[in-house]
Write a protein that binds this DNA or RNA. Sequence first.
DNA 1: TATAATAGTGACCAAATGGTCAATTGTCAA
DNA 2: TTGACAATTGACCATTTGGTCACTATTATA
Lengths: 276, 276
Amino acid sequence: MIKKQLIMEKALELFAKQGFEATTVQQITEYCGISKGAFYLSFKSKDELILALIDHHMMQFTSDIDYIVRKTNNENLLYEFYYAAFHSFHQHSDFAKILMKEQTQTFNEELIKKMHYYDRQTEKIILSMIERFYGEEIKQTKYDLMYCIKGFINTYSHLFLFYNVPLNLNLLSESLVEKTNLLARHTKLPFISEELIQVIKQPMTEEDSKEKILENIQKKIEEMEESIEKESLQLLKQQLLEPTLSPAIVKGLIENIQNHPHCKWTSYLLQSYYGF
Amino acid sequence: MIKKQLIMEKALELFAKQGFEATTVQQITEYCGISKGAFYLSFKSKDELILALIDHHMMQFTSDIDYIVRKTNNENLLYEFYYAAFHSFHQHSDFAKILMKEQTQTFNEELIKKMHYYDRQTEKIILSMIERFYGEEIKQTKYDLMYCIKGFINTYSHLFLFYNVPLNLNLLSESLVEKTNLLARHTKLPFISEELIQVIKQPMTEEDSKEKILENIQKKIEEMEESIEKESLQLLKQQLLEPTLSPAIVKGLIENIQNHPHCKWTSYLLQSYYGF
DNA sequence: TATAATAGTGACCAAATGGTCAATTGTCAA
DNA sequence: TTGACAATTGACCATTTGGTCACTATTATA
């Protein structure tokens, strides 16, 4: 299990530097100081490794951003969002680079699906954020605004990911807040209509079904020692199988696991599921 | 020579669908209905093919956009720019897809350099456009604006490149003009300063030296039959070797070759060189 | 028609890659 | 110390890839 982590960390570095396809299993094992066989004890294939990397980091990123957006009050909402997003990209710049590089690549059907899935999650978060922040004001232009925000993050990330520029996160975030406000408050001419969004959404099929959440919870329960968090998870599992608890209690239970470092994604899924 | 074109067209399709690395020479030759040997008669290597593709299309794109920006009066400048850019992307969507996919990939040092080079050209064009259009007004924020425009094009291109959405180019362009105007007229808080741009520009070294332009002109002269355009090229070549003509005449000569389908890039280079 | 020159073919090659597995090494309870 | 079990190794394999070249077909020329 610890070996798995070592491989993931080292491989991440190599993938960021050379790209996924261009990095050989040999290189990875050499860089880890292990044998080829040992690699295949931890991962069934090279593909499984990249998939695991994507999952690990995107779960982290998505739940982090979601948490920030949830907990921040309206006044600093946009700023905190941008700050958190860029901070995360900066801190995990190797992963962010992979994300940029492999974004639209086509080797692996499953990988594409995963990317799409997490992309949708991010869009959902951004959308809920601007709906809360601007309210009715942006009803007609919210999809455009969401796309622009995504575009800003993408474009400006390049600056510090691929050039070694000194990064003033504070200024960057403030600057983008200003731009976002301008677009939100004065745009009259949206391009992305509701129906356009429907067309785009088509390819998304995989929903977070109850079964998938249960599976996730079960896994977490198994790898966790006795604690309040574990008990909360068990109760939440029961609740999913047979609803008996009141929403307040459920929310409290989710709150309980929120801060456990291994349950961020689980709590994100549950919050999405229960619509909190 | 005609074979070369066939290969480029067919390969473009495959690259767009599967990516460069994932497409084998075998697949290309089969798709063209030729033998492997024939492929290597036209291109020294697979790398040379992708390089040729990039050059061909980026020269086209860059000089087209530059021409549009030059010839359009201020009133419709932004609109025409966006329209032309998206129109070009749409018409050569296979190439645009490759551009997106291989954007930040690292296989080939030379390819990266090429991409950077054309990227800088595009930035130059956008910058000159907004400087002309907004004047002093955006002095402090022009680099941010330029990045946002690039970001808009990137972000919104995805919509029609990777999803089959019906495309209303007119609406899209108008919508982006509105956004651009908002950002240009009201942004007070730039992020990208002059010195930041200098840091980024560092890696660009390859300038369009006189020698490179001469080389290009010579090639065009050789593959051209007798015509006004050829004569103009010969005079322009002379002028580069030994300046004797007045600027007005030079400008006229460039004008002459402007419309020849094979001289668009040459005329772009000359205009850049003479600062017209 | 004969000859030369050019274009095109596809079997073949060396190198590299993801993945396997018999053999070796390490661990630890008895 | 032993021996059973698990972890680890790296030589090995099948396959694929970009690229070559001796040979054939076609076209232009005399």
